[in-house]
Design a protein around this nucleic acid. Structure first.
Lengths: 191, 191
DNA sequence: ACCTGAACACCGTTCAAGT
DNA sequence: ACCTGAACACCGTTCAAGT
């Protein structure tokens, strides 16, 4: 063995994940990451192009996990309404469990840090599928966008503690969600 | 005059505003700010407690401006629906005009950087007032929260260019907004 | 009271040098 | 191929020193 320590890419990403979860994107510094790996900072550049590249990897992993959770929620047995509620809950729960990862995925983000378009597409695929059950394929994009806006807005405002005035803020959210679903049902889909 | 240059607080805030507008919060560095003011970095600390303090000031100013715009839109003549639409448009327009300021206001934010609670309250006051016209004071908080979630979600996702798949994304938003207003009207308010 | 330069502890990244 | 230390250009912030 030519060197005392060899960096394994898995370790690198695991430690970066920990840093992100603990301290947010700002805490993911190349030097601190190197410190935790017991390695010099420049050596990281043999395994990662740049800090932005590393963050892009973390975004991709968070997006994949969120997509998986939404998918699971959308495929459970039950009516369309119950599954849409489940997907909304999964979205909120992911944000509550991993606020820093959630913020990184949806936060303002330099072009260099953008994940592949198809990753985002895959994450929203299940929402589009369940939406199509409700309003048909032609209007599924239209409806999914409205649902996503409501859920995302509620989640981010909740995460930013902007509902301090209203301790019972969940009630309004679930009511509004049902309203959108009611309207979609009324507009005549395939189910 | 004991010194060649004296910092005026207005200048300091104006330059910081420019930096924020041009390059986002990350671009607002004490050293770059000092450079633009033709002054040493440490001297800034006689006019501002810390960088977080400065950013808090910028958040406050953005929040005040957004609040003012919402207020103006909410007080125009016209029906409740038209005014709510106007407020939504004002929200979106502010975010489009000042994306970095918008992101700073609603982005994840260390506790030290939080503006006064009553500033946020004042910004949402007009929304609550117009909501109360629609559903009465008892349910205005409930309804305002739903509206805000939808508008905020749509705005942030739009700013993050998450609607790339759907070039006609505005239509779905306005439709959903009307749906929420319809439901509120149906639920029996004072108007 | 207000400004300065020097300093401390951080950053991302590059690069010549080692194995 | 992979790792290192030194270096460069950045940060926020403190502090003794000047006026």
């Amino acid at each position: 063995m030519p060197h005392p320590t060899r960096i394994r890419r898995d370790d690198l990403l695991d430690r970066a994940f920990e840093l992100l979860s603990e301290e947010g994107a700002e805490g993911v510094s190349m030097r601190e990451l190197a410190r935790r790996l017991g390695v010099s900072a420049p050596s990281l550049y043999f395994h990662v192009e740049s800090r932005d590249d590393l963050l892009r990897e973390l975004i991709a992993s968070a997006l994949t996990e969120l997509g998986g959770r939404l998918d699971a929620a959308g495929q459970r047995t039950g009516g369309v309404r119950a599954r849409l509620r489940g997907m909304a809950r999964a979205y909120i729960e992911f944000a509550e469990e991993s606020p820093h990862r959630f913020a990184l995925v949806f936060g303002p983000c330099p072009v260099d840090r953008r994940p592949d378009d198809d990753l985002g597409a895959r994450a929203s695929e299940s929402l589009l599928r369940v939406s199509a059950e409700l309003v048909g394929p032609a209007r599924s994009l239209f409806f999914a966008e409205a649902l996503w806006s409501l859920v995302h807005g509620y989640t981010t405002l909740r995460l930013a503690e902007q509902f301090r005035l209203n301790p019972d803020h969940e009630a309004g959210f679930w009511y509004s969600l049902d309203l959108l679903i009611d309207a979609a049902e009324g507009s005549g889909g395939t189910v």
